[in-house]
Design a binder for these strands. Sequence first.
DNA 1: GTGAGTGCAAATGCTTTGCAGACGT
DNA 2: ACGTCTGCAAAGCATTTGCACTCAC
Lengths: 155, 155
Amino acid sequence: MPGMLPANEPQLASALSERLRHLGVRVTPQRLFVLEALAVRSGHLTAEEIMRWTARRSPAINLATVYRTLDRLVSLGLVTQTDLGGGAATFELVGDSPHHHLVCERCGIVTEVDDSLVAALRAQVLDRYGFRAQSRHMAIFGTCRACLEREHAVR
Amino acid sequence: MPGMLPANEPQLASALSERLRHLGVRVTPQRLFVLEALAVRSGHLTAEEIMRWTARRSPAINLATVYRTLDRLVSLGLVTQTDLGGGAATFELVGDSPHHHLVCERCGIVTEVDDSLVAALRAQVLDRYGFRAQSRHMAIFGTCRACLEREHAVR
DNA sequence: GTGAGTGCAAATGCTTTGCAGACGT
DNA sequence: ACGTCTGCAAAGCATTTGCACTCAC
């Protein structure tokens, strides 16, 4: 469902309603707006960004509600939360292909990498420590190519 | 130097002073206290914990000073900072063997794992993306063995 | 109608900052 | 003596919470 076309919002809304109903939670406009924001602007959104997106709709959603809603959606397993360092946490619809993040500590740029890179590590960690690492949204901190080159150029 | 015995604090202090002087920064009691805390209670300390530790010494250090000091020490390369999810950041003396963290999302327990597990991943990321991942303090979130077993038992 | 969900405002927890004074060099 | 570092208090930011009201069921 994510990766769905931005057009056709009524269809999107009813698909999302269906999903919520199946999980046995109330369907409120606020919840639909949050899910729509995540579906349409697929990618990593902060709570603040979601609120700004929904502000284009009639009465803007309260930030506290966005947080509570996201919390709920995360426990329902519809949404994942990632904390990419200091700033605000980002949220994403489950359903996109699993991926992880390379976060540059100098310039802050975030690059998505496929889960296949990390699969071997996950297998090892499970084998050696009985630890089941999550298959999405691991943050790997370091220095990106551009910043490494810049560093070299200076010297 | 880290991994040094807790006893013999005068020696520790002068070794640390030496280190600071070599880096061309002022040697203040506060900086020594912070470094001592990290050296003696080797492991991951939060700014607050460091302050509490130094509070056993004469006038307790101000929390703001602890943060500023840690900031300075991180840029000097003497200390590393790790953000293990929502709570407070933790700090550690550089010099311990590189390691990473398995963070259980249910019970919060943190297990240290050797860098060798992650070395292959680092090599791949460098090769494929030109990204130099840091060799310490990656946080891997997931579910620990105990919580997995508990989960099974319930069903 | 009832309880879950919402808005609002205030509180929280971690961290940063402005400023005046203290102290390492 | 100089400039850096510290303490203090206040601000900053992301997130949470208490409470009264509203709305989905």
